[in-house]
């Protein structure tokens, strides 16, 4: 029973952080389930995919007017992401995964730099707003496409790059960018989760306490986000981007995928 409770708590932490940063939570769930609970990777990934959908659902269920996802933006970027994934799949045999990793690391560092530059611009910006117009569509769609390409080639999610791109490059308020990203990662996870369910890689007694924790964590994260300062979330994103950029760079230099 204590193990089921531990799964619930792990899910709650992943859901809270996933909702706050717009990542879905998979980036935390897979390592936690494999390293702390010693689950096989396939079982961990299957559980994590349902967890990402639970984060997306929790954020959507607890959002208030003006703090939810920008649906038109999400749908358009989702098409760019899918196109990138297809190109990534076609290019898989032509382009070295190492070079793609290095290219992606450069984009991640550039986005971190953009976000840092925005943080130097001063505080006082709102977490949510409705009177904005997304700009630099080409750069935003290009980055979303690259995230899809990397996802297709290297098997990593792209939520961590979509939030700073929407926020720092396209001028979307940070709270709206995280909600939009959570909507998008939910769609991406739904595209592959049924394969895992069909293969039996989603064990109900592991997934249910985890998913319940993730859902409640996502609701708590959404409520918490409305009380946080934009600057705190911005710095959390910068630290995360630098960590992922270094990991991608090392992966590229090491030649592994």
């Amino acid at each position: 029973m204590s193990l089921l409770l531990a799964l619930f708590v792990t899910g709650a932490v992943a859901g809270t952080v996933g909702a706050l940063l717009g990542l879905g939570g998979g980036i935390f769930l897979v390592p936690a389930l494999t390293l702390l609970f010693h689950l096989p990777v396939r079982l961990a990934v299957g559980t994590s995919l349902v967890g990402v959908i639970a984060t997306s659902a929790g954020v959507a269920a607890s959002a208030r007017d003006g703090s939810g996802a920008d649906v038109p933006l999400a749908l358009r970027l989702e098409i760019a992401t899918a196109a990138g994934a297809v190109i990534g799949g076609l290019a898989a045999g032509l382009v070295s995964a190492s070079w793609i990793s290095i290219l992606f690391a450069v984009v991640v560092f550039a986005t971190a730099g953009y976000t840092l530059a925005k943080s130097l611009g001063g505080d006082g910006e709102a977490m949510y707003a409705s009177d904005y117009t997304p700009r630099r569509w080409l750069a935003g769609s290009g980055t979303a496409g690259l995230a899809g390409m990397v996802s297709g080639l290297l098997g990593v999610g792209g939520g961590f790059i979509k939030v700073p791109t929407m926020y720092a490059v396209m001028g979307v308020p940070l709270g709206v960018a995280t909600a939009t990203s959570n909507f998008m990662v939910g769609i991406t996870a739904a595209a592959s989760v049924f394969v895992y369910i069909g293969r039996g890689d989603v064990h109900p007694l592991i997934a249910v306490p985890t998913v319940a924790g993730v859902f409640l964590g996502a609701v708590a994260g959404t409520l918490l986000q409305s009380r946080l300062k934009v600057g705190w979330l911005r710095w959390a994103l910068i630290v995360l981007l630098v960590a992922i950029g270094v990991q991608m760079l090392l992966r590229g230099i090491g030649g592994g995928a």
């Binding site: 349902v50 959908i53 639970a54 997306s56 659902a57 959507a60 649906v71 749908l75 909507f183 939910g186 769609i187 996870a189 739904a190 989760v193 049924f194 369910i197 989603v202 109900p204 007694l205 997934a207 249910v208 998913v211």
Partner: peptide
């Protein structure tokens, strides 16, 4: 119990598609 849990998980996984359909 196992079936009900699986049905619940499947219903949750259908949500992103239903949201896109709603939009």
């Amino acid at each position: 119990g196992q079936r009900l849990m699986l049905y619940g998980l499947v219903v949750l996984c259908l949500l992103p598609g239903v949201r896109v359909l709603t939009a």
